[in-house]
Design a protein around this nucleic acid. Structure first.
Length: 224
DNA sequence: GTGTGATCATCT
DNA sequence: AGATGATCACAC
């Protein structure tokens, strides 16, 4: 098994490393690094993300901080079809359902995580080992993009802060949405409803809609 | 139980 | 087909 990948010391080094992986299949790089390759992701949904984090020398583990903490960079794999169209939404972070919800967009987990993101497209719809690692995109939101994210975040957190539990669903938000994020639907947390009474609801997380991530790829790679 | 990494399964 | 709600594995 190859030696562990060292922590990248600069953006340039990280980007160079990611670029070196581009064009290779998941199967090839997994075998090279001694990773077992699952036939399906049915029972290993986070496998691609963990593989790429390892190959790039990420450090955060499961702490709520950027993958490359000293660089302030979050890494996200982005599964796409052959044309670079995202196949899934992108998980951003959990959403605090209690009083610890950030009081402003400026202080929010979403803004901090999205401030600098290394997107790594994973291209293809066939067997996992045949899918290609795409060209990396080191991205920060444009003014327009941040405005959309901020508006969505404020809309969503407002629902929670108001205690409108009945109104929590994935239909809100142009780019950012709230969806269940837990082991299963039986996992519940206590919150306060509109009248301040304790009620239970599912834990949620923030996700980026595919339309938004598709826009990023089109803007930077000029894909149709 | 809560965080990380996400995709799966189903309905419209 | 696209979106929503549900679920899987692992670390701590």
């Amino acid at each position: 098994m190859p030696a562990p990948v060292p922590i990248p010391q600069s953006e340039a080094e990280l980007l160079q490393r990611a670029t070196a992986l581009a064009g290779h299949t998941l199967g090839a790089v997994a075998i090279h690094y001694g990773f077992g390759l699952p036939h399906t992701q049915r029972r290993q949904k986070g496998w691609v993300g963990v593989l790429l984090e390892t190959l790039l020398g990420a450090t955060a583990g499961n702490r709520p901080v950027p993958d490359f903490e000293h660089l302030g960079i979050e890494m996200k794999t982005l599964p796409t079809d052959e044309h670079g169209k995202p196949r899934e939404s992108t998980y951003v972070s959990t959403c605090p359902m209690n009083g610890t919800l950030a009081s402003s967009w400026e202080d929010s987990r979403v803004r901090h995580k999205m401030a600098r993101v290394l997107w790594i497209p994973i291209v293809g719809t066939g067997p996992l080992h045949e899918r290609l690692i795409g060209s990396p995109l080191l991205w920060s939101p444009s003014e327009a993009e941040e405005k959309v994210l901020r508006n969505d975040w404020e809309t969503l957190t407002d629902i929670i802060v108001r205690g409108e539990v009945w109104n929590l669903n994935a239909r809100h938000g142009e780019a950012l949405q709230l969806r269940p994020k837990a082991a299963n639907a039986k996992q519940l947390v206590w919150v306060h409803d509109e009248e301040g009474n304790p009620v239970q609801t599912q834990p949620r997380g923030f996700y980026l809609r595919p339309r938004f991530t598709h826009g990023l790829l089109k803007k930077h790679f000029g894909l149709s």
